[in-house]
Nucleic acid binder design. Structure first.
Lengths: 247, 247
DNA sequence: TTCGCCCTTAGAACAGTGTTCACCATTTGC
DNA sequence: GCAAATGGTGAACACTGTTCTAAGGGCGAA
């Protein structure tokens, strides 16, 4: 990661540059945003386990203690990373006729954003969107459920359930990804066939259902399994809609 | 924790005892089971963040390195703690007429076991029951779903969804518990009224839905919210049952 | 009973971690 | 030009998981 605009102290400036007054600020000022950027860089490269304050500081070419002037703790840094997940995304205005499609889009978008960064689902699971920056998102999500006609108690639970499923599903995806990394399995295809091979060695009389379904549990198509999951939840939610009484 | 049967080395045995040969083994032998016990003790007292190999060793009055003769790593220890969650619990034989009630019991039992130990949901989320000891549980769970009449693709997804919901829900419960601990809030009642007070200060024109539902999102009755959640999923699953064609 | 082996445990060490503190340099305001 | 404020530095503290060498005890063989 080369810092554009940051001078390498090992290379002295030529004399004619030196005479110019303040060509550019010698060091890019450290800001909270740059720290979060660097944390994402480290996360993607090293994974959650190796994401440390020292790694982030190293990424920025700065002492560890310098970070603490802009971020009060590692927990706070993780919270900022979580908050940034929602940047540039906003839920649409509620459309009562298409609330299910709107919720599906919300879930798909959430999963896509989590998958963009390694181990991001793990960080996401440990946080809750009840902060000033994120409350508007929750508000709009609830608005869609209520516009769809869900009773209040169900609408209140629905947001949590959708988020839990989305985060949990993606978290499991990333866990398998990590397992694959540790197993040194070259590709997903190889990993999956290894798993299926294992299930095929089980005694058929004791594990008939596992053997029958193993092909669908360890599916090649995570997208389809995700879609099935949100469809199941949506059908359950929709079953609570009371038919509108005609005036 | 006093070790019954373990002699205090500071107190010498009386001479008439000394003559008896091998009254009792002077030290209780360290075993994997005792290590897991101690780990649970530390977890309950200190929480997940402070659960370290040194703490576990200290609990047993033993050097850290001694643990590694019985457990190859901290990860493996956590895996054994996870496995023990299922000890003494087995799912009933499938009853097609009452499959939904059977699944509800499974979820309730799982949540109850997770709540028995502090931060246990966090450990549970990071593991997957595809080990030799736990596969029989998965097998029986799948059997219930299939007996209920779910199509194979849905049955394959159902186990995952139920587990994810159960673990995710309980994980959030324990996170709020931890927040309460850090906030030094005396009781849950106090914590909840603080939260509701916060939501009441939100501008009503911008957050109408949040304000309307805050009372149900931060309910006093976690049990009821959990029941609602599993009911929603079960209704979604049941919607996939194809009506049995009469012969 | 004594010897020797092997498994178990102890203690120190290594390379990390989050966080804090006294210090120092540079830039800014007067 | 000088003082003050800003913001980064490097060392330190109290931890972490893991590994290594060395010492200990219990057991079977002679």
């Amino acid at each position: 990661m080369s810092e554009p605009g940051q001078a390498d102290p090992a290379v002295p400036s030529p004399p004619w540059e030196r005479s110019r007054k303040r060509v550019a600020p010698v060091r890019v000022p450290l800001t909270r945003e740059r720290i979060i950027d660097a944390a994402y860089t480290v996360l993607d490269r090293e994974g959650y386990e190796r994401l440390s304050m020292r790694q982030v500081a190293g990424e920025l070419g700065v002492a560890v203690s310098a970070l603490y002037a802009h971020v009060s703790s590692k927990d706070e840094l993780l919270e900022h990373m979580y908050t940034r997940l929602f940047d540039g995304h906003s839920l649409p205005d509620p459309d009562p006729e298409h609330w299910q499609e709107q919720i599906k889009d919300f879930a798909r978008e959430g999963r896509a954003r989590l998958l963009r960064h390694r181990d991001m689902a793990r960080i996401s699971m440990a946080h809750v969107p009840f902060t000033p920056e994120l409350l508007p998102h929750v508000e709009r999500l609830l608005a869609i459920f209520r516009a769809g006609g869900l009773p209040d108690a169900v609408a209140a639970a629905a947001g949590d359930m959708m988020s839990t499923f989305m985060e949990g599903f993606t978290f499991e995806e990333s866990m398998w990804e990590e397992r694959r990394r540790n197993t040194e399995a070259a590709s997903w295809k190889e990993m999956r066939s290894t798993i299926k091979g294992y299930f095929d060695t089980l005694p058929p009389e004791r594990f008939p259902n596992l053997i029958a379904l193993s092909g669908m549990i360890f599916d090649d198509d995570n997208d389809a399994r995700f879609e099935l999951g949100i469809e199941i939840i949506l059908r359950g939610l929709a079953s609570y809609i009371e038919p509108r009484t005609q005036p």
